[in-house]
């Protein structure tokens, strides 16, 4: 069984005010098929964890390790991490002018599989996945994320999740900016991906809303760059009622 393991991770970023410490010793272990929710107030380091795992060059790992089945992820380039089975659904996916969704998906699939997918079954699979996410067919002819609405961008991320079939996926605030219908469609897509591939999920969210549609096995509360509390799904319910106030009283954030 695959395991993604984060150990004592310390991460900083360069800001205009100098080096800023964001993650101050994070430990996490996600097994295949599990769903972990990471919750926490703004600025607690949730997204930093997501982008550090994916390998964004902006984040500097000071110490600690991230391993995927024992292999050190921090030694891998961004694309090697993806080929090892990691996927990040981004909160703000960028536009890639002049690159059509269809070409992009096929290029990504080819890169991950090491060979181009057979055309006919691939097109069928793409069309099927788009239909399930209620995406119009004309989507594949549009340039990646160009002129997409917020909801379309999120669907496009989940479309990739379903088609590229990673072993572990990090969803960075996929729920933000979605209305309830779009949230349901996107959540269904995530659940489908998990059922069909046994995906391990790391769900990063500020709100408990998405947890009504994607049930977490574990909930971790992030405060000031550390996991402040861990528990089962009942912890999310408690946060829904109480908010993050009780974590903030004894930190500088408040």
């Amino acid at each position: 069984m695959s395991v993604l393991s984060v150990k004592d991770l310390h991460v900083s970023v360069e800001t205009e005010q100098g080096t800023k410490q964001i993650l101050k010793g994070v430990d996490l272990e996600i097994k295949q098929g599990e769903t972990h929710a990471i919750m926490g107030p703004n600025g607690s380091g949730k997204s930093t964890l997501a982008y550090t795992i994916a390998g964004h060059p902006k984040y500097h790992v000071e110490s600690g390790s991230i391993t995927l089945d024992g292999a050190e992820v921090l030694d891998m380039s961004i694309d090697e991490r993806a080929r090892a089975g990691l996927f990040l659904a981004m909160q703000y996916p960028v536009e890639i002018p002049g690159v059509k969704v269809a070409d992009f998906l096929r290029t990504a699939k080819t890169a991950l599989a090491g060979e181009a997918p057979a055309l006919r079954p691939w097109i069928k699979e793409v069309n099927g996945a788009m239909k399930a996410l209620r995406m119009d067919k004309t989507f594949s002819d549009r340039n990646v994320n160009e002129g997409f609405s917020g909801g379309e961008k999120k669907r496009n991320e989940i479309l990739q999740l379903e088609l590229l079939k990673p072993r572990f996926a990090i969803l960075d605030e996929t729920d933000s900016g979605l209305d309830v219908d779009a949230l349901k469609i996107v959540s269904e897509g995530v659940n489908r991906a998990q059922e069909s591939t046994g995906l391990g999920l790391l769900l990063i969210t500020h709100y408990t809303r998405i947890l009504r549609y994607i049930t977490p096995d574990f909930v971790h509360v992030f405060v000031d760059g550390r996991v402040a509390e861990e528990g089962g799904p009942e912890l999310a319910d408690r946060l829904e009622n109480e908010g993050y106030d009780r974590f903030l009283t004894d930190t500088s954030v408040a």
């Binding site: 994916a54 890639i96 991950l112 590229l164």
Partner: peptide, 29 residues
């Protein structure tokens, strides 16, 4: 644009291929 390269690489596309895609996309308009 580093963010464009990051996005493509995060989908398993090599840096060289990502650069190629971005340039061709840029000019294909």
């Amino acid at each position: 644009d580093d963010e464009q390269l990051f996005y493509l690489q995060a989908r398993g596309i090599s840096e060289a291929e990502a650069r190629r895609l971005v340039v061709i996309g840029f000019l294909s308009e």
